[in-house]
């Protein structure tokens, strides 16, 4: 029998995961996250409060609910043009996510969504932290720290005044929307 050099033996998952592990090791070696990464690739405790969300996700682009809402509604409109009954076309996961992000979007129009991300990105936040703040829009510094404890514990601790300014700017977008 002829053996094709094809992807026969390569379980897609098996290959992918080992590849990812290699990537994250190479990256983290430089910034002192080596031990954490090693244990994350195994089944170690994740904890979003300490920003332990695994390297794939830490480096990935996070989306705020309002951004997801724009993306999903756009996709839904596209489907609508192709079929009469788009709700039949989409998965339950899509439907539930769309309902959820519509309900919990802080900013409705695309301009304010962009502004919100622009303001938050001035403060050297991790993607995940940025999106938690954008989603929950805390009103006080104390509340912001309770929502995202890692902003105070990651070496580059933000000053209270800076946090206050950030929250203020955010609430202004909302006011002028």
């Amino acid at each position: 029998m002829i053996q094709w050099p094809g992807p026969l033996g390569l379980g897609p998952d098996g290959k992918r995961s080992s590849q990812h592990a290699m990537d994250s090791l190479a990256f983290s070696n430089t910034d002192g996250l080596f031990l954490r990464t090693l244990s994350m690739s195994g089944e170690e405790e994740e904890n979003a409060a300490e920003l332990k969300i695994g390297d794939d996700f830490l480096k990935a682009k996070c989306l705020m609910n309002c951004e997801v809402s724009l993306i999903l509604e756009h996709k839904y409109e596209q489907l609508q043009q192709m079929a009469d009954d788009p709700m039949n076309q989409v998965s339950q996961v899509f439907e539930k996510s769309l309902q959820y992000v519509k309900r919990f979007s802080r900013y409705k129009n695309p301009d304010s969504v962009r502004q919100a991300r622009e303001i938050l990105s001035r403060y050297q936040l991790a993607e995940f932290e940025l999106c938690v703040l954008g989603n929950l829009c805390p009103e006080t510094v104390e509340e912001a720290i309770a929502m995202v404890p890692s902003i105070k514990s990651r070496g580059r601790a933000l000053e209270d005044e800076a946090i206050e300014k950030m929250l203020n700017d955010l609430s202004l977008i909302k006011k002028f929307e």
């Binding site: 094709w4 050099p5 094809g6 026969l8 904890n47 979003a48 969300i53 996700f57 938690v132």
Partner: peptide
Amino acid sequence: LIRDGTGFVTFPVKYQCVVFRPFKGE
């Protein structure tokens, strides 16, 4: 890549997607 015996072809596809992943502590 053509698969032996079936004629099916396997394509590796890289795609962007929106995922929802809950985390402990979130």
